[in-house]
């Protein structure tokens, strides 16, 4: 049997075949990330974002995709660690009437709710924090993967950084680390269609320099860059 016939029947495929046609990917709205993921988030698949802490830009990485997906269908936030704040979501272009915040009582219910929302086909985007109480098993991720395919929905699984060493059936895994207010360090552990590339840093919209804040510019010199430190009772901090 020749190599060509194997290739033709699809039993053998080339690792270098990069699918950038947009049929199997969903543009993330950030050019550097699209390049990293060979066209964008894998469509109707589970993507894992691994990070520790909060406020490192984990949502800013998703906001452009969420804004695009939320125009037509619902976005489900399952067990978010804090309240997704509507004024900020609105500024990012998300349709507020399509945001659903689900807070299940325990791990089992959270998995059930995630699967239901994915399967329903009416939530194109689901973002889930499932690791409050116990770790998500590999077979659960596989199940969510199937549900996402069935409902043609996108699941972003937000997980702690510690699970990076474990294997996972997700289509794409990114480890996020903060660098500064306007860039984030992204290490791709796994992506569809190619080997994992070396880590890169991606620039994000800077929160402190948003357009709405233009009138602060004049006084910016006075305050920004200043260091403050507690304990606050004893010391006069900000001059």
């Amino acid at each position: 049997m020749s190599l060509q016939s194997l290739l033709n029947t699809g039993r053998l495929w080339r690792g270098a075949n990069q699918r950038t046609d947009g049929q199997h990917t969903l543009s993330s709205g950030i050019q550097a990330l699209d390049q990293l993921l060979l066209g964008g988030w894998p469509k109707a698949q589970v993507s894992e974002l691994l990070y520790s802490g909060q406020g490192i830009g984990e949502l800013r990485l998703l906001l452009p995709s969420l804004a695009a997906l939320s125009q037509q269908s619902h976005t489900a936030w399952i067990n978010p660690p804090f309240v997704p704040y509507p004024p900020a979501l609105q500024d990012a272009g998300l349709a507020l009437k399509h945001q659903l915040v689900v807070s299940p009582a325990d791990h089992k219910q959270a998995l059930w709710a995630t699967e239901q929302t994915l399967k329903s086909g009416s939530c194109m985007a689901v973002i889930a924090w499932l690791e409050q109480q116990q770790e998500v098993a590999s077979r659960d991720i596989r199940r969510l993967q199937l549900a996402a395919e069935q409902g043609q929905s996108q699941l972003w699984l937000m997980r702690p950084e510690q699970v990076a060493q474990q294997s996972s059936p997700s289509a794409c895994r990114l480890v996020l680390t903060a660098i500064s207010s306007h860039s984030i360090h992204v290490h791709c552990l796994k992506r569809r269609g190619s080997w994992a590339p070396p880590p890169i840093s991606i620039s994000l919209p800077d929160v402190s320099r948003s357009e709405q804040a233009h009138w602060f510019r004049a006084t910016e010199q006075q305050c920004s860059g200043q260091l403050i430190q507690g304990p606050w009772q004893q010391r006069q901090s900000a001059h």
């Binding site: 909060q54 406020g55 949502l59 800013r60 906001l63 978010p80 660690p81 804090f82 309240v83 997704p84 704040y85 004024p87 900020a88 979501l89 500024d91 990012a92 207010s181 929160v207 402190s208 948003s210 709405q212 804040a213 602060f216 510019r217 006084t219 910016e220 006075q222 305050c223 920004s224 860059g225 200043q226 260091l227 403050i228 430190q229 507690g230 304990p231 606050w232 900000a238």
Partner: peptide, 23 residues
């Protein structure tokens, strides 16, 4: 600027160094 995450209740700032980025 408005944050994506709002704490349900404001919490006292932990005693660590913080750099203010805006006016």
């Amino acid at each position: 600027a408005r944050p994506c995450w709002l704490l349900p209740q404001p919490k006292p700032l932990p005693a660590a160094p913080w750099e203010l980025k805006t006016a």
